[in-house]
Structures are given as structure tokens and as C-alpha cells.
């Protein structure tokens, strides 16, 4: 789940228009860029889609960290293709946000100066090759739970980009699990890496769903607008229930002594992550928060001359074409 803690905006529009808008959403209509929409709907969506896009772009970095060290040619190609997909997903999402009247450059600027956030998960380091497995298995697994229902979200361009993203992502989680299987069934050192990766990524993965709904004041409005499709706790529970048997299959231990099957609710009881750590990470105090933004800032600054030069060349070409006519 790449959008966390999205503050939804109150709206002060004409009540009649608001009612008609809500009726369209309730009827399952898609809202399109030129349609009337409440200012709060627009602002909330920009924040949510923007944060989702930023998460894809920053999310390239922890996995990109291992592309040059992938242990076989095939693993290198797979990982590169996957991280490349993330750039593509960021691109689709920025374009969706742009239909709401905000430019990609503006969104980038807001990421770099801290006004916009990215998912907390990408502020954690990737320390061994098994982390490539854990990120695919757990992080993409958690993201998919959120993204699949978003294919039915009320905003047309967002829904369509999610359709494309979900289609492309279908191999991401599987490649992660495939790495985990190799590691968990490998040498002693590989097994140790696999368990270590699970230990480090378990709680940060649970944080991806955001704090408990009971504490989230914004969920309700967003759910009415159909830009948030499920509650945080509901998705987290689903994630745990799905992941525990997979860990058992791998012969790995989930780092939670309280984890137990609860017959009554038909799901696992599990320990909550340390939410104070989560809020620290969101404030920019994650283990890699500074490096992540530094890397994006450097790419942005170093690329400025290229972006300008391409524009200048296109302008000259256009002028020459006009002169020739």
C-alpha cells in the first residue's frame, strides 16, 4: 500500500452539486478530468495519486541497490525489468495526477522539499540479496492488496492506470517469492539471509497499511468518494492471513511470538508494529530517508541540463520547420 495517511479535504461546495456528485459515485460512475468535482475531492486525489507515484519512484532505489550485484544474468535481467516497471508505474500515476491540474515537475518539487511523502517502507535499507526476495514477497504483496481494489476507484484516469499497473505487477510478487524459495532452501548462509530479511521487513510491511482505522479520521470521506476502497485494519489482517502460511511453506519464522490462529475470527492474532517508529519514518527519520531524497534530488539536479537541452533542440527544430514552409 503506497498511499498512507492521506488527509482528506473538507469541501465547501454547493450542496446540490455535491449531492449529485455523490450520487454519481454511488451509482458506480467514473469521474473524468473535465467533469465537475468538489475541490476537496480534487485535492485529496492529487495528494493520494502523487504520494503513490512518489512511492514508485523512490521505491526504485532500495531494489536498484542490488541490480549491479544480482548473482546471475537472469536474476539481473528480472530485477532490472521489475525496477524499470516501477519507473513506468510512477510515470502512469504522475500522468493521472496531471489530469487534475498539477504538473509532474510541481509534484517532484513537493517530494524533494518534503511537502509530499512517499511510503514509509522505502526508507528501509536492503542489506542482502534475500531482501530482493522479501521486498517482492512482502512489500509487493502488501501493495497488491491495496492496488487491486483501486482498479475500481471512482476517478477514471487513476482507475485506468491501476488496471495497467496491476497487470504488469503480477510477476513482481512471484519473482520475490521465487528468490525466497531459493534462499530458504539454499546453503546455511542463504537461509540465514532469508530469515534476517523476514525479520527486518515484517513490521515495516505491516506499517504499509497505515495506522488503525480507529485513529484515522480521513478514511471515512475517502471511502465515500471511493478513492479508498478498504479499511487499513481489514487489509492488514488479510495480508497477515495470506502471508503466514507462505512463511511456513518457506520454513521461516515470523518474528512475532504472539502470532496465533484465532478460530473465532477465522484469522491470525498478531502484534502491531511500533507505531512511534512509523511516525518517525514519516517525519523523515527512517534509516534511509535522507539518502533516498538525496538520490532523487541528485538525479533531478544532474538531469536539468539534459531536460533543458532537449527542449531547446526541439524548439530549434520547430523553428527550422516553420522557416522552411
Amino acid at each position: 500500500m503506497y498511499a498512507q495517511m492521506i488527509k482528506s479535504e473538507a469541501t465547501q461546495d454547493d450542496p446540490e452539486k455535491l449531492a449529485a456528485f455523490q450520487a454519481r459515485i454511488d451509482a458506480g460512475d467514473k469521474i473524468e478530468p473535465k467533469d465537475w468535482m468538489p475541490a476537496g475531492y480534487r485535492k485529496t486525489l492529487i495528494r493520494q495519486i502523487g504520494q503513490h507515484a512518489h512511492s514508485e519512484i523512490v521505491g526504485q532505489l532500495p531494489e536498484g541497490n542490488w541490480i549491479t550485484r544480482a548473482p546471475t544474468l537472469e536474476r539481473k535481467a528480472i530485477l532490472l525489468a521489475k525496477v524499470q516497471d516501477e519507473a513506468g508505474h510512477g510515470l502512469y500515476l504522475y500522468c493521472a495526477a496531471e489530469t487534475l491540474g498539477v504538473s509532474r515537475d510541481k509534484l517532484t518539487e513537493m517530494l524533494l522539499d518534503g511537502r509530499m511523502k512517499y511510503s514509509s517502507i522505502f526508507s528501509y535499507p536492503t542489506l542482502t540479496w534475500a531482501d530482493m526476495g522479501a521486498v517482492g514477497w512482502l512489500v509487493d504483496g502488501a501493495a497488491i492488496m491495496n492496488q487491486v481494489p483501486l482498479q475500481r476507484t471512482s476517478y477514471g484516469p487513476y482507475a485506468r492506470s491501476m488496471v495497467r499497473i496491476c497487470k504488469e505487477e503480477s510477476f513482481h510478487q512471484r519473482q520475490g517469492f521465487d528468490i525466497m524459495m531459493k534462499m530458504a532452501n539454499g546453503t546455511e548462509a542463504q537461509k540465514r539471509m532469508a530469515q534476517d530479511a523476514l525479520n527486518r521487513f515484517w513490521y515495516p510491511s505491516l506499517m504499509m497499511f497505515g495506522p488503525s482505522d480507529a485513529e484515522s479520521v480521513h478514511s471515512e470521506q475517502s471511502m465515500r468518494w471511493r478513492i479508498k476502497m478498504n479499511g487499513n485494519d481489514e487489509l492488514r489482517q488479510k495480508f497477515v492471513d495470506q502471508t503466514v502460511p507462505q512463511a511456513e511453506y518457506l520454513g521461516l519464522t515470523i518474528p512475532d511470538e504472539t502470532l496465533a490462529w484465532n478460530e473465532e475470527k477465522g484469522g491470525y492474532d498478531f502484534a502491531q508494529p511500533d507505531w512511534s517508529e512509523f511516525f518517525d519514518v514519516l517525519k523523515g527519520n527512517g534509516p534511509c530517508s535522507v539518502e533516498r531524497i538525496e538520490a532523487r534530488q541528485k538525479a533531478w539536479d544532474d538531469g536539468a541540463w539534459v531536460r533543458e537541452a532537449r527542449l531547446a533542440h526541439a524548439a530549434k527544430k520547430q523553428a527550422a520547420k516553420v522557416a522552411a514552409e
Binding site: C95, R310, L311, A314
Partner: peptide, 12 residues
């Protein structure tokens, strides 16, 4: 229609 992107001219 599959989506959008940024580019400086048609060839790009």
C-alpha cells in the same frame, strides 16, 4: 489510448 508521457517533440 494507452496513456500519456512527456516528450519534447513528435519523434521523441
Amino acid at each position: 489510448h494507452v496513456g500519456s508521457l512527456h516528450a519534447t517533440d513528435a519523434e521523441h
